[in-house]
Design a protein around this nucleic acid. Structure first.
Length: 335
DNA sequence: GATTCGTGGTG
DNA sequence: TCACCAAGAAT
Protein backbone atom coordinates (compact mmCIF):
# COMPACT_ATOMS: atom_id res chain seq x y z
CA UNK A 1 0.00 0.00 0.00
CA UNK A 2 2.83 2.41 0.80
CA UNK A 3 4.44 1.79 -2.59
CA UNK A 4 1.09 2.33 -4.27
CA UNK A 5 0.62 5.52 -2.26
CA UNK A 6 4.00 6.87 -3.31
CA UNK A 7 2.97 6.43 -6.93
CA UNK A 8 -0.71 7.38 -6.81
CA UNK A 9 -1.27 9.73 -3.88
CA UNK A 10 -3.59 12.65 -4.45
CA UNK A 11 -2.31 16.19 -3.99
CA UNK A 12 -4.62 17.91 -1.51
CA UNK A 13 -4.34 21.35 0.11
CA UNK A 14 -4.04 19.92 3.63
CA UNK A 15 -1.65 17.17 2.68
CA UNK A 16 2.12 17.70 3.02
CA UNK A 17 4.23 16.95 -0.02
CA UNK A 18 6.69 14.06 0.27
CA UNK A 19 9.50 15.11 2.60
CA UNK A 20 7.53 18.04 4.02
CA UNK A 21 6.41 18.24 7.60
CA UNK A 22 2.61 18.41 7.85
CA UNK A 23 0.97 21.33 9.65
CA UNK A 24 -1.00 19.78 12.54
CA UNK A 25 -3.58 22.59 12.48
CA UNK A 26 -4.30 22.00 8.80
CA UNK A 27 -4.47 18.25 9.31
CA UNK A 28 -6.89 18.67 12.22
CA UNK A 29 -9.06 21.19 10.38
CA UNK A 30 -9.23 19.03 7.26
CA UNK A 31 -10.16 15.94 9.23
CA UNK A 32 -13.02 17.76 10.93
CA UNK A 33 -14.26 19.28 7.67
CA UNK A 34 -14.07 15.87 6.01
CA UNK A 35 -16.25 14.18 8.61
CA UNK A 36 -19.17 12.88 6.51
CA UNK A 37 -18.27 15.44 3.85
CA UNK A 38 -16.72 14.92 0.43
CA UNK A 39 -13.28 16.09 -0.67
CA UNK A 40 -14.85 18.10 -3.51
CA UNK A 41 -17.00 20.04 -1.05
CA UNK A 42 -14.22 20.57 1.47
CA UNK A 43 -11.41 21.69 -0.81
CA UNK A 44 -12.55 25.29 -1.51
CA UNK A 45 -13.96 25.70 1.98
CA UNK A 46 -10.65 24.61 3.49
CA UNK A 47 -8.71 27.13 1.39
CA UNK A 48 -10.99 29.98 2.40
CA UNK A 49 -10.88 28.95 6.05
CA UNK A 50 -7.09 28.82 6.39
CA UNK A 51 -6.80 32.14 4.57
CA UNK A 52 -8.96 33.68 7.29
CA UNK A 53 -7.81 31.66 10.32
CA UNK A 54 -4.36 30.31 9.43
CA UNK A 55 -3.56 28.72 12.77
CA UNK A 56 -5.08 27.51 16.03
CA UNK A 57 -4.31 30.79 17.82
CA UNK A 58 -6.26 32.89 15.32
CA UNK A 59 -9.18 30.50 15.52
CA UNK A 60 -9.10 30.61 19.32
CA UNK A 61 -9.37 34.40 19.15
CA UNK A 62 -12.12 34.41 16.53
CA UNK A 63 -15.65 35.64 17.10
CA UNK A 64 -17.81 32.54 17.33
CA UNK A 65 -20.65 34.08 15.31
CA UNK A 66 -18.24 34.68 12.44
CA UNK A 67 -16.97 31.12 12.68
CA UNK A 68 -20.50 29.74 12.51
CA UNK A 69 -21.27 31.93 9.49
CA UNK A 70 -18.09 30.70 7.81
CA UNK A 71 -19.24 27.12 8.31
CA UNK A 72 -22.68 27.77 6.78
CA UNK A 73 -23.57 25.25 4.12
CA UNK A 74 -21.18 22.58 5.36
CA UNK A 75 -23.66 20.95 7.71
CA UNK A 76 -23.22 19.24 11.07
CA UNK A 77 -22.75 22.61 12.72
CA UNK A 78 -21.59 21.18 16.04
CA UNK A 79 -18.30 20.69 14.23
CA UNK A 80 -17.78 24.44 14.00
CA UNK A 81 -18.69 25.03 17.63
CA UNK A 82 -16.32 22.26 18.68
CA UNK A 83 -13.52 23.64 16.51
CA UNK A 84 -13.64 26.92 18.44
CA UNK A 85 -13.86 25.13 21.78
CA UNK A 86 -10.92 22.92 20.89
CA UNK A 87 -8.86 25.85 19.60
CA UNK A 88 -9.41 27.65 22.89
CA UNK A 89 -8.47 24.53 24.86
CA UNK A 90 -5.30 24.26 22.78
CA UNK A 91 -4.46 27.87 23.61
CA UNK A 92 -5.14 27.58 27.34
CA UNK A 93 -4.20 23.98 28.14
CA UNK A 94 -1.57 23.04 25.55
CA UNK A 95 0.54 26.15 25.13
CA UNK A 96 -0.91 26.92 21.72
CA UNK A 97 0.21 23.72 20.02
CA UNK A 98 -1.94 20.70 19.23
CA UNK A 99 -1.21 17.82 21.59
CA UNK A 100 0.74 15.09 19.81
CA UNK A 101 -0.70 11.91 21.30
CA UNK A 102 -3.85 10.08 20.30
CA UNK A 103 -5.11 10.09 23.89
CA UNK A 104 -4.71 13.85 24.38
CA UNK A 105 -6.22 14.60 20.99
CA UNK A 106 -9.18 12.36 21.79
CA UNK A 107 -9.92 14.57 24.83
CA UNK A 108 -10.50 17.65 22.65
CA UNK A 109 -14.10 18.43 21.66
CA UNK A 110 -14.99 17.20 18.19
CA UNK A 111 -12.21 14.63 18.01
CA UNK A 112 -13.57 11.11 18.28
CA UNK A 113 -11.77 7.80 17.80
CA UNK A 114 -11.27 8.31 14.09
CA UNK A 115 -10.08 11.93 14.08
CA UNK A 116 -7.75 11.53 17.05
CA UNK A 117 -6.09 8.54 15.39
CA UNK A 118 -5.89 10.30 12.02
CA UNK A 119 -4.26 13.45 13.44
CA UNK A 120 -1.86 11.48 15.63
CA UNK A 121 -0.74 9.38 12.67
CA UNK A 122 -0.77 11.94 9.85
CA UNK A 123 0.40 15.07 11.69
CA UNK A 124 2.68 13.54 14.33
CA UNK A 125 3.88 10.25 12.88
CA UNK A 126 2.40 8.22 15.71
CA UNK A 127 1.41 4.67 15.07
CA UNK A 128 -2.39 4.68 15.18
CA UNK A 129 -5.10 2.49 13.71
CA UNK A 130 -7.23 4.80 11.60
CA UNK A 131 -10.64 3.40 10.71
CA UNK A 132 -12.91 5.58 8.63
CA UNK A 133 -15.56 4.48 6.15
CA UNK A 134 -12.91 3.89 3.46
CA UNK A 135 -10.71 1.74 5.66
CA UNK A 136 -13.76 -0.14 6.87
CA UNK A 137 -14.82 -0.89 3.31
CA UNK A 138 -11.36 -1.90 2.09
CA UNK A 139 -10.62 -4.07 5.13
CA UNK A 140 -14.08 -5.65 5.20
CA UNK A 141 -13.60 -6.73 1.59
CA UNK A 142 -9.98 -7.75 2.00
CA UNK A 143 -10.81 -10.08 4.89
CA UNK A 144 -14.42 -10.67 3.86
CA UNK A 145 -15.49 -9.88 7.38
CA UNK A 146 -18.35 -7.96 8.93
CA UNK A 147 -18.96 -5.88 12.01
CA UNK A 148 -16.97 -2.95 13.32
CA UNK A 149 -15.03 -4.85 16.02
CA UNK A 150 -13.88 -7.50 13.54
CA UNK A 151 -12.98 -4.85 10.96
CA UNK A 152 -11.04 -2.86 13.51
CA UNK A 153 -9.13 -5.95 14.66
CA UNK A 154 -8.30 -6.75 11.04
CA UNK A 155 -7.18 -3.16 10.42
CA UNK A 156 -4.90 -3.43 13.44
CA UNK A 157 -3.14 -6.40 11.86
CA UNK A 158 -2.41 -4.60 8.57
CA UNK A 159 -1.41 -1.19 9.98
CA UNK A 160 2.38 -0.75 9.75
CA UNK A 161 4.50 0.58 12.62
CA UNK A 162 6.11 3.19 10.38
CA UNK A 163 4.25 5.59 8.12
CA UNK A 164 0.88 4.58 9.56
CA UNK A 165 -0.39 8.04 8.57
CA UNK A 166 0.59 7.47 4.95
CA UNK A 167 -0.94 4.02 5.20
CA UNK A 168 -4.22 5.51 6.37
CA UNK A 169 -4.21 8.07 3.59
CA UNK A 170 -3.34 5.34 1.10
CA UNK A 171 -6.38 3.35 2.22
CA UNK A 172 -8.54 6.45 1.87
CA UNK A 173 -7.26 7.20 -1.62
CA UNK A 174 -7.79 3.57 -2.57
CA UNK A 175 -11.31 3.59 -1.13
CA UNK A 176 -12.12 6.84 -2.86
CA UNK A 177 -10.84 5.99 -6.33
CA UNK A 178 -10.77 2.20 -6.65
CA UNK A 179 -12.41 0.28 -3.80
CA UNK A 180 -15.62 2.29 -4.20
CA UNK A 181 -18.95 1.39 -2.58
CA UNK A 182 -20.45 0.43 -5.92
CA UNK A 183 -18.71 -1.08 -8.92
CA UNK A 184 -15.18 -1.16 -7.47
CA UNK A 185 -12.39 -1.05 -10.03
CA UNK A 186 -10.72 -4.29 -8.95
CA UNK A 187 -8.64 -4.47 -12.14
CA UNK A 188 -6.70 -1.44 -10.90
CA UNK A 189 -6.45 -2.52 -7.27
CA UNK A 190 -3.05 -3.39 -5.82
CA UNK A 191 -4.78 -5.61 -3.24
CA UNK A 192 -6.97 -7.59 -5.63
CA UNK A 193 -4.90 -10.75 -5.47
CA UNK A 194 -5.17 -10.73 -1.66
CA UNK A 195 -8.84 -9.77 -1.48
CA UNK A 196 -11.21 -12.41 -0.13
CA UNK A 197 -14.34 -10.63 -1.31
CA UNK A 198 -12.89 -10.29 -4.80
CA UNK A 199 -12.01 -13.98 -4.89
CA UNK A 200 -15.62 -14.76 -3.99
CA UNK A 201 -17.00 -12.23 -6.45
CA UNK A 202 -18.88 -10.54 -3.62
CA UNK A 203 -17.17 -7.16 -3.38
CA UNK A 204 -20.38 -5.17 -3.14
CA UNK A 205 -21.70 -7.32 -0.29
CA UNK A 206 -19.08 -5.68 1.97
CA UNK A 207 -19.15 -3.83 4.22
CA UNK A 208 -22.45 -5.03 5.62
CA UNK A 209 -24.69 -2.03 6.23
CA UNK A 210 -27.63 -1.94 8.66
CA UNK A 211 -31.03 -1.40 7.13
CA UNK A 212 -32.07 2.23 7.00
CA UNK A 213 -35.27 3.48 8.53
CA UNK A 214 -37.66 5.53 6.41
CA UNK A 215 -37.44 9.29 6.86
CA UNK A 216 -40.66 10.86 8.14
CA UNK A 217 -41.96 14.06 6.54
CA UNK A 218 -42.33 17.23 8.55
CA UNK A 219 -43.98 20.51 7.64
CA UNK A 220 -43.44 24.07 8.71
CA UNK A 221 -43.58 27.71 7.70
CA UNK A 222 -40.80 30.20 7.10
CA UNK A 223 -41.65 33.80 7.92
CA UNK A 224 -40.08 36.43 5.69
CA UNK A 225 -40.59 39.74 7.47
CA UNK A 226 -39.34 42.75 5.58
CA UNK A 227 -39.02 46.44 6.29
CA UNK A 228 -37.84 49.33 4.19
CA UNK A 229 -35.32 51.94 5.28
CA UNK A 230 -35.78 55.64 4.51
CA UNK A 231 -33.32 55.31 1.63
CA UNK A 232 -35.33 52.46 0.18
CA UNK A 233 -32.99 49.69 1.30
CA UNK A 234 -34.84 46.46 2.13
CA UNK A 235 -34.10 44.53 5.30
CA UNK A 236 -35.31 41.12 6.45
CA UNK A 237 -35.63 39.80 9.99
CA UNK A 238 -33.16 37.08 10.95
CA UNK A 239 -32.96 35.17 14.22
CA UNK A 240 -30.32 33.05 15.92
CA UNK A 241 -31.30 29.43 16.49
CA UNK A 242 -30.81 27.85 19.91
CA UNK A 243 -27.23 26.77 20.58
CA UNK A 244 -28.00 23.06 20.59
CA UNK A 245 -29.98 20.85 18.29
CA UNK A 246 -30.68 21.05 14.59
CA UNK A 247 -28.82 23.94 12.92
CA UNK A 248 -27.80 24.94 16.45
CA UNK A 249 -26.26 28.38 16.85
CA UNK A 250 -26.89 29.35 13.26
CA UNK A 251 -28.42 32.53 11.94
CA UNK A 252 -31.78 31.71 10.37
CA UNK A 253 -35.07 32.91 9.00
CA UNK A 254 -37.84 32.69 11.63
CA UNK A 255 -39.90 29.50 11.48
CA UNK A 256 -42.82 28.17 13.42
CA UNK A 257 -43.00 24.61 14.73
CA UNK A 258 -42.13 21.65 12.47
CA UNK A 259 -44.95 19.15 12.66
CA UNK A 260 -46.61 16.19 10.99
CA UNK A 261 -48.97 18.47 9.10
CA UNK A 262 -48.81 22.03 7.82
CA UNK A 263 -48.95 24.36 10.85
CA UNK A 264 -49.90 27.48 8.86
CA UNK A 265 -49.18 30.78 10.56
CA UNK A 266 -48.65 29.48 14.09
CA UNK A 267 -45.37 30.61 15.57
CA UNK A 268 -45.17 33.81 13.52
CA UNK A 269 -42.56 36.24 14.91
CA UNK A 270 -45.04 39.14 14.93
CA UNK A 271 -48.71 39.66 14.32
CA UNK A 272 -48.83 40.99 10.77
CA UNK A 273 -50.74 40.73 7.55
CA UNK A 274 -49.04 37.52 6.41
CA UNK A 275 -49.38 36.44 2.82
CA UNK A 276 -48.83 32.73 2.16
CA UNK A 277 -46.96 32.31 -1.08
CA UNK A 278 -48.04 29.61 -3.48
CA UNK A 279 -44.66 27.96 -3.21
CA UNK A 280 -42.97 25.27 -1.11
CA UNK A 281 -39.32 24.86 -0.18
CA UNK A 282 -38.38 21.20 0.21
CA UNK A 283 -35.27 20.15 2.07
CA UNK A 284 -33.94 16.78 3.16
CA UNK A 285 -32.20 16.35 6.49
CA UNK A 286 -30.51 13.19 7.67
CA UNK A 287 -33.47 11.74 9.51
CA UNK A 288 -36.51 13.56 8.15
CA UNK A 289 -37.64 15.58 5.19
CA UNK A 290 -39.04 19.07 5.52
CA UNK A 291 -41.55 20.97 3.42
CA UNK A 292 -41.75 24.64 4.27
CA UNK A 293 -44.48 27.05 3.27
CA UNK A 294 -43.41 30.67 2.78
CA UNK A 295 -45.24 33.50 4.54
CA UNK A 296 -44.27 37.09 3.78
CA UNK A 297 -45.20 40.38 5.43
CA UNK A 298 -43.92 43.94 5.53
CA UNK A 299 -43.52 46.21 8.52
CA UNK A 300 -43.34 49.96 8.14
CA UNK A 301 -40.37 51.48 9.88
CA UNK A 302 -42.42 53.01 12.69
CA UNK A 303 -44.47 49.97 13.71
CA UNK A 304 -43.65 47.64 16.57
CA UNK A 305 -40.29 45.99 16.26
CA UNK A 306 -39.59 42.27 16.34
CA UNK A 307 -36.97 40.23 18.17
CA UNK A 308 -34.00 39.46 15.98
CA UNK A 309 -31.60 41.12 13.62
CA UNK A 310 -32.57 43.21 10.58
CA UNK A 311 -30.34 42.22 7.70
CA UNK A 312 -29.97 43.98 4.32
CA UNK A 313 -31.68 41.79 1.74
CA UNK A 314 -28.99 42.39 -0.85
CA UNK A 315 -26.33 41.21 1.61
CA UNK A 316 -28.01 37.95 2.60
CA UNK A 317 -25.24 35.92 1.03
CA UNK A 318 -22.98 37.13 3.83
CA UNK A 319 -25.38 36.21 6.62
CA UNK A 320 -24.18 32.63 6.88
CA UNK A 321 -27.56 30.98 6.50
CA UNK A 322 -27.81 27.18 6.47
CA UNK A 323 -28.82 25.77 3.11
CA UNK A 324 -32.50 25.35 3.89
CA UNK A 325 -32.84 29.07 4.61
CA UNK A 326 -30.64 30.07 1.69
CA UNK A 327 -33.01 28.06 -0.51
CA UNK A 328 -35.99 29.90 0.94
CA UNK A 329 -34.35 33.28 0.42
CA UNK A 330 -33.65 32.42 -3.21
CA UNK A 331 -37.21 31.25 -3.72
CA UNK A 332 -38.63 34.48 -2.30
CA UNK A 333 -36.16 36.55 -4.27
CA UNK A 334 -37.65 35.11 -7.45
CA UNK A 335 -41.15 36.30 -6.52
C1' DG B 1 -26.37 1.04 21.61
C1' DA B 2 -29.64 3.84 19.24
C1' DT B 3 -30.49 8.69 17.93
C1' DT B 4 -29.49 12.98 16.48
C1' DC B 5 -26.95 15.77 14.26
C1' DG B 6 -26.55 18.53 7.03
C1' DT B 7 -25.31 18.62 2.70
C1' DG B 8 -24.04 17.65 -2.07
C1' DG B 9 -22.46 14.25 -5.38
C1' DT B 10 -23.56 10.07 -7.72
C1' DG B 11 -25.28 5.94 -10.26
C1' DT C 1 -35.46 10.55 -9.95
C1' DC C 2 -34.02 9.19 -5.69
C1' DA C 3 -31.72 6.08 -2.53
C1' DC C 4 -27.32 5.77 -1.21
C1' DC C 5 -23.34 7.57 0.76
C1' DA C 6 -19.29 10.37 2.57
C1' DA C 7 -11.91 11.28 5.99
C1' DG C 8 -17.99 10.65 12.40
C1' DA C 9 -19.07 12.74 17.06
C1' DA C 10 -21.91 13.46 20.92
C1' DT C 11 -25.36 12.04 23.87
Amino acid sequence: MLDWYDRHRRTLPWRALPGERPDPYRVWLSEVMLQQTTVATVRPRFEAWVARWPDAASLAAADEAEVMAAWAGLGYYARARNLVRAARAIATDHGGALPDTEEALRALPGLGDYTAAAVAAIAFGRRAVVVDANVERVVARLFRTAGKPAVRAAAETVTPDRRSGDFAQAMMDLGSAICTPRRPKCLLCPLASDCAAHAAGEEEAYPVKPAKKPRPARFGTIFWLEREQADGAREVLLVRRPAKGLLGGMRALPTGPWEDSQPGLSGAPVAADWLMLNQIVAHGFTHFTLELALAVARLDAHSASADGEWWPVDELAGAGLPTVFAKAATAIGRE
